[in-house]
């Protein structure tokens, strides 16, 4: 565990993580399945255009997928989000999202629950890119809310 922690404070590793998630994004296909909730994120900016799908049943995020055209930060942060939240309960997911939002707000956060997503730790310093790191996360937030209605 300590080893992983050390790795996740090494800038070279974090840079590599973003690169990997950008070039080979995880869960990067949508499926035709009515049991999935779906959110198209395109109206916030005229550049990024992604769609996030989630299958949320019995209070658990059973599957999360996404597709679309987006920058490195949008793509990598969304890909990391799908890894991190798949299989989590809604309550767990909400806590992780909360910590992620704190990190993007430049506040104190719990790095342990964010795992690889700590690669986004410096994005808050570039105001024009914060939105990129939030696009996928805001999508899943919306889908969780929708599932609770």
């Amino acid at each position: 565990m300590t080893d992983t922690k050390d790795l996740l404070t090494n800038p070279d590793i974090l840079r590599e993580l973003i690169m990997d998630h950008y070039q080979y994004p995880h869960h990067h296909t949508l499926i035709e399945d009515d049991s999935y909730l779906k959110k198209h994120m395109a109206s916030d900016s005229c550049i990024d255009d992604i769609t996030v799908q989630a299958k949320i049943e019995e209070g658990i995020l059973k599957d999360i997928r996404f597709d679309g055209v987006a920058c490195t930060i949008s793509t990598a942060s969304t890909s990391m989000m799908t890894d991190l939240l798949r299989g989590k309960t809604i309550a767990e997911a909400k806590e992780i999202i909360k910590q992620y939002d704190l990190m993007l707000d430049g506040k104190e956060y719990d790095a342990d629950v964010l795992e690889e997503a700590v690669a986004m730790q410096n994005v808050y310093k570039q105001a024009n890119r914060i939105r990129c790191a939030l696009i996928g996360w805001n999508a899943i937030k919306g889908l969780i809310e929708e599932s609770e209605k």
């Binding site: 840079r15 950008y22 570039q126």
Partner: peptide
């Protein structure tokens, strides 16, 4: 791409 990501570190 490397340099573009490098901006964040």
């Amino acid at each position: 791409i490397e340099n573009a990501i490098g901006v964040f570190f």
